[in-house]
C-alpha cells in the first residue's frame, strides 16, 4: 500500500483554482520530485500534505492517517510528516540543539535527556554535531538548513517534505544541503520535494512529477521525462531551464 495517497485534491485561493484534482501515490522509500513553473501549484500541493494549506475537496492519507477537506485536527498526521522550508524557519531564540529538541520534548513528551541524545544524534547525522550550542544567527544558511532537516528528522517522520530547500541559499552552500538529502534518500527515507535543482531531481528522484496549471501534467521516471517528454508543456519547461 502506498505510504502517501492523494485523491482528487481541489484547492482554491479565492477565485483562483490552484489544484484541479490531484491524484498521487508515493510508496515507502520513494523519492518524488515535484517540478514545474512558479504558480503551477507544486508548493501548494506539498503544503497540503501536512495540512499547512486547507483544501476544499479530496482526501490525503499518510501511513493510514486520513486528512479530509476542512479537517482541523492535524496532530496525528503531522507527527508522521516532516517538513523543511525554503527559509529554514529555525526558532531564533533557541540554540541549534534546542531547536531540534523542542518537538520531541513538547509533542512526544520524551524525557529531556532522551531529547538531548536524539538532538545530538540528528545534528551529527547532518554533519553539525559541534554546533549543538550555536544559535541560528551564528550559522550559515546551509548550516541553518541542515539544522532544520535535523529538527524535522527528530520527530521520526514517515515522509519528509522539502519545499525548495536550496532556493534561499548562496550557490556554494547548496551542495552541502543536497548531500544530506541524498544520504537520506539512500537510507530509504521517503521524500517529496519541490525543487528547481533539475540535475539533483534527476539524479536522486525515483519519480518526477511535472505540474502545470494546477494539474499533474506528466509523471514518470526522471530519465524518461527528461529525454522523451510526451507533452509540449514539459518539453518547453525542460528547454527553458537549460
Amino acid at each position: 500500500m502506498a505510504l502517501v495517497r492523494i485523491d482528487g485534491l481541489h484547492k482554491h485561493f479565492g477565485s483562483n483554482h490552484v489544484l484541479k484534482g490531484i491524484n498521487l501515490k508515493v510508496e515507502r522509500g520513494e523519492v518524488v520530485a515535484l517540478i514545474g513553473r512558479s504558480g503551477s501549484g507544486k508548493s501548494t500541493l506539498l503544503r497540503s500534505i501536512n495540512g499547512l494549506e486547507r483544501f476544499e475537496d479530496g482526501l490525503i492519507e499518510v501511513d493510514g492517517e486520513r486528512l479530509h477537506a476542512g479537517q482541523t485536527n492535524l496532530r496525528d498526521l503531522r507527527q508522521k510528516v516532516g517538513m523543511v522550508f525554503q527559509q529554514f524557519n529555525l526558532f531564533p531564540h533557541l540554540s541549534a540543539g534546542q531547536n531540534v529538541m523542542l518537538a520531541p520534548e513538547v509533542v512526544k513528551k520524551l524525557p529531556k535527556a532522551e531529547c538531548e541524545s536524539i538532538a545530538r544524534a540528528m545534528l551529527a547525522k547532518v554533519g553539525l554535531a559541534e554546533k549543538f550550542d550555536a544559535y541560528p544567527d551564528q550559522l550559515s544558511g546551509g548550516q541553518q538548513q541542515r539544522v532544520a532537516i535535523a529538527r524535522a528528522l527528530a520527530m521520526q517522520p514517515q515522509v519528509l517534505l522539502c519545499d525548495e530547500i536550496t532556493s534561499a541559499l548562496d550557490p556554494e552552500l547548496v551542495s552541502e544541503v543536497l548531500a544530506v538529502v541524498k544520504t537520506l534518500a539512500a537510507e530509504g527515507m521517503t521524500l517529496v520535494m519541490v525543487t528547481h535543482e533539475m540535475r539533483f531531481a534527476r539524479e536522486v528522484g525515483d519519480t518526477l512529477v511535472f505540474m502545470h496549471e494546477g494539474r499533474i501534467h506528466e509523471s514518470g521516471a526522471p530519465d524518461t521525462l527528461f529525454t522523451r517528454p510526451r507533452t509540449p508543456e514539459l518539453a518547453n519547461f525542460i528547454g527553458s531551464i537549460h
Binding site: 495540512g51 499547512l52 496532530r75 517538513m83 527559509q87 531564533p92
Partner: peptide
C-alpha cells in the same frame, strides 16, 4: 515571521 509558526505547526505542536 509566519514561517516560524508554520515550522512549529509542521512539528505537530499545539
Amino acid at each position: 515571521p509566519r514561517g516560524q509558526i508554520e515550522a512549529a505547526e509542521s512539528l505537530a505542536m499545539t
